[in-house]
């Protein structure tokens, strides 16, 4: 059967090679669809919004005249919200992650139930948290439609993500580090606080900041809990507010077409805020790259 060998050699690979190319082509075109759409959207926003991207937009107060309107209160409130989310979600999220990874006994059903639920909560649509927040935080404990309430609700939105990211980071710390610390007579808390946590900071920081940038762009839950359209003064923790995404949303609904341009410009500002947050995340990840 010596003749059979060259036949199969000649026939076999050709089809496999062809398939290989086809698959590469498919992947490439998928990437172009994903990336092309994004680029188009970005370009459209940039072109539309560029003329209105001015100092006035950053420092001015909102107005019914598009040529005079700015978004300072909205930008400030968005930064406040981001700060609040950071202050609330990181300690709570990281401590939860530490408990689940380092302390919880997985044999116990309630710990497993908590784990599964946190995974599921990460997938709950933000509007659901808005409804929850309206009932329990705004009206329930009577915080009212203020910046703090918005911050608490956005914290709920991102908390599961922070927990999941922090757990991943903590799990990635090799056991040999824990063993080494235990061997020196450190208590469990000392091991966690002085070895595991510092070693997992890059992962935690990256995950938290990405979650934060999601929170900053969130509109739906904020509309539910009282971010409003027209606020012509700087926000305070216990005062009424509007947020940048809400401001953008409302501007797009105005009759005067001038507001559409303004909305695009404000969208660029929001994009810049989110992108700079992501840049910080990337910086942290590279700065404290894993060493083991």
């Amino acid at each position: 059967m010596t003749t059979a060998v060259p036949t199969s050699l000649a026939g076999g690979p050709r089809r496999r090679v062809w398939r290989n190319r086809l698959f590469q082509l498919a992947m490439l075109s998928c990437m172009f669809v994903a990336f092309g759409t994004l680029a188009l959207l970005l370009a459209d926003t940039l072109i539309t919004g560029w003329p209105e991207l001015s100092r006035r937009l950053l420092t001015g107060l909102p107005s019914t005249v598009p040529g005079e309107a700015g978004a300072r209160p909205a930008i400030l409130a968005t930064l406040y919200l981001g700060l609040l989310v950071l202050v609330f979600s990181v300690p709570i999220g990281v401590l939860t992650a530490i408990y689940l990874e380092e302390y919880a006994n997985r044999e116990r059903w309630w710990n497993r139930a908590i784990e599964v639920n946190i995974q599921n909560l990460a997938a709950v649509p933000a509007i659901v948290y808005g409804i929850l927040g309206l009932a329990f935080i705004v009206r329930g404990i009577g915080v009212g439609r203020v910046v703090l309430a918005g911050g608490l609700i956005l914290t709920l939105v991102v908390l599961p993500t922070v927990v999941v990211a922090s757990r991943e980071a903590i799990r990635a710390v090799p056991d040999s580090i824990r063993q080494g610390a235990f061997a020196l007579g450190a208590t469990k808390w000392q091991v966690v606080w002085r070895q595991v946590l510092p070693a997992s900071i890059p992962g935690i920081a990256t995950g938290s900041i990405l979650a934060l940038s999601r929170a900053v762009g969130e509109t739906a839950p904020l509309i539910m809990v009282g971010a409003i359209t027209y606020v012509a003064f700087n926000p305070s923790l216990f005062g009424p507010y509007t947020a940048l995404p809400v401001q953008i949303y409302n501007w797009t609904k105005q009759p005067d077409p001038g507001f559409q341009t303004l909305a695009a410009a404000a969208a660029i500002v929001l994009l810049a805020i989110v992108l700079s947050m992501n840049a910080v995340a990337i910086f942290l990840r590279n700065r404290y790259r894993k060493q083991w």
């Binding site: 040999s176 580090i177 063993q179 080494g180 061997a183 020196l184 007579g185 070895q195 510092p198 070693a199």
Partner: peptide, 20 residues
């Protein structure tokens, strides 16, 4: 246990310095 570990030092099979 913490006290025992403190009194009895341990060196592991694979070197495991802390990432510090």
């Amino acid at each position: 246990l913490v006290e025992i570990r403190r009194r009895i030092g341990m060196v592991f099979q694979k070197p495991n310095p802390f990432p510090k």
